[in-house]
Design a protein around this nucleic acid. Sequence first.
DNA 1: TATGTACTATACTTTACATCA
DNA 2: CGTGATGTAAAGTATAGTACA
Length: 340
Amino acid sequence: MELGLSLGEVADGGRPELVLGLGVGRGEEEERGRREGGVVGARRWEAAASPEPSVRLSLVTSLGLRWPSESENGRSAARARGFDVNRAPSVSARDALGMEEDEEGPAAPALSSSPNDSGGSFPLDLSAHGLRGPTDTAAHGGGERSSSRASDDDEGASARKKLRLSKEQSAFLEESFKEHSTLNPKQKVALAKQLNLRPRQVEVWFQNRRARTKLKQTEVDCEYLKRCCETLTKENRRLHKELAELRALKTARPFYMHLPATTLSMCPSCERVASNPASASPSAPEAAAAAPAPTTAAARTAVASPEHRPSSFAAMFADPRSFPLATQQRPPPPAARNCL
DNA sequence: TATGTACTATACTTTACATCA
DNA sequence: CGTGATGTAAAGTATAGTACA
């Protein structure tokens, strides 16, 4: 499901040149990832390493704004966007996980021992990563939160007891999440084994982690959209003002009445009356004279074709130079450019 | 090709716990 | 120190999509 408003086109590379929308639910990219990710089990492992934001804009260059820490090649979009959702200690979960290996150890050890087991050790060699097991943590942590989940043996005996992962476990999971935001079954079991958790717990942690990432991303995106909206509102006001001025000027004395006859000409292609920039109305000429003609094919198309006139919302964002920011120089209107 | 099943995903909700005024 | 409000995170539930037999 996706609710959204999309304007304009998507570039060849798959990166949207103009996508303005608030996505709700599953996006197409994500769906594609699901379809093309590979074989069952492992299919999501690589495909979803870089979750796409639900809201994407490439108004970035048009508006002169940047996505918060827009990344070059970030592994995860969330991480790339500057908020710190994925920050984790410099512990390599990949190393400990043996990501490349296909170690399919039985999950029994992990299932049978819980962090809170009185006799439970912490089989993961966390010491190699400066980590301690929960038991150790509880003993040495000095009040630090530790895993307090009742063992699986207790399950069903009473109301569910909330598990609090230890800092070490959380850090380790974070590190794994930085590597891959989804887990295949083997990875899940391996990670659970390493952390002395049940695979289900690892799975739930990743689910919640993805949800948190998405939530934060949504917040960031909303903030950005607000800024875009403010910019557009300002620009709209400015244009209205300019239009009113031009109308007033025209009412007072039509500008062409004061132009020498030789400066007026009819454009053969658009059939508009154009005038010599030097003698045009006082408010428009600077922009017309100063603005360079669009150099890219896209920009030319955007300006030239009727459906991509500057009044078209899509055209405004299609090319940075055509977006009418107050501080930006604008290309001349089609008639003027075509005629001169 | 249609269908049932297993698996996994997300979205939303519930619940337990920590923190703070 | 006790208590209620609030935030956070783990876990549960519902539902949908995909692969496969």
